[in-house]
Design a protein around this nucleic acid. Structure first.
Lengths: 170, 170
DNA sequence: TAGTTTCTTCAATTATTTTTGAAGAAACTA
DNA sequence: TAGTTTCTTCAAAAATAATTGAAGAAACTA
């Protein structure tokens, strides 16, 4: 349902407009899909849907979240380089804008949140190869094929990661 | 650390061997990455690392999980077609084996767990396009470009899904 | 330097998800 | 048909993750 004119003028006084709410909602869902908390999605969504840079107290006000949520959420977003800090003369507060390149954000996410898992997976596969030596002859071929398949999966995952960034052209 | 001979003989009496434990561990991590509960990863990992089909009571015994966890975990795995039910003459219980094709499992997972999100995302993008009409002229170009980028991201995601299955050759 | 603003950190609360126990349904068996 | 085995379901308990409040650090300001 659309906002009527009376609601709209209210919204313009400082709250979020309907389109912003819709964008934030969409971003929250994507964040969830990536295993990120709702608050992180909300903050990025808000910044992404804001024409001007916002300080933390404004984020708190607009999203109705606590100061600590905002601070921790922004910390996560900074670590993913999903937000940029704007310089505003005569301002003490940090003002944030959204990094608009999804490709950058997602490739940072993959590098920092996914790759480490794949790396430790490779180490585990090496351990499995060693353990194959202890397996009895009649079971050897079964276990070898299992470990082999896991290794192929690991390689496929490693090929996939750069492709993901490559396919996102924005 | 490797099991010493005394431990090994114990393991052979009916417990899991070290290689199986390692495989289960690896699968549990992958499952987590896909947002699946630990028990689901454990059950698939056990079946994947078992040379013969296993009934539910054996799964419970080996993994030390409750009957209901096992039942629900197998339900999830069946819905992803990640397990197959073996027919064993004269057996009342269902015996399970792991679907060994990761490509099949992952493509089912994407179809059932990821695609619906992308579809509902498309609908939300349509709503955003409509809401653009309500935006004032000076803000129109900003919001248009934001919605446009989200649309491009949605398209990229839709291109990516089939690629994922394609790159996993096993 | 004392006070203010802005922000961070972390223990405690709250919310969410996973696992379990218990009740019972379905299918077989004596 | 009464009893047994096998399995499912779902409310309750346990575990895990997210959010908050409170304490205080850092950087500025009068």
């Amino acid at each position: 349902m659309r906002a009527n004119p009376a609601q709209l003028s209210l919204l313009l006084e400082g709250d979020l407009n309907e389109l912003q709410l819709e964008i934030i909602n969409a971003v929250v869902r994507m964040a969830k899909l990536m295993g990120l908390p709702k608050s992180v999605g909300e903050i990025y969504g808000l910044l992404y849907s804001s024409p001007e840079a916002l300080p933390m107290d404004r984020i708190i006000e607009l999203l109705k979240i606590s100061l600590s949520s905002a601070s921790m959420g922004l910390k996560t977003l900074r670590s993913l380089r999903a937000v940029k800090v704007a310089y505003i003369p005569g301002e003490r507060r940090d003002f944030y804008t959204a990094e608009e390149s999804f490709r950058k954000i997602i490739s940072n996410f993959l590098k920092e949140e996914v790759s480490p898992h794949l790396e430790s997976g490779k180490e585990r596969l090496d351990i499995m190869s060693e353990l194959l030596a202890d397996v009895s002859d009649e079971e050897k071929s079964f276990y070898s094929s299992r470990v082999d398949r896991l290794q192929q999966l690991s390689k496929a995952a490693n090929k996939l990661l750069p492709l993901v960034s490559h396919i996102i052209k924005i």
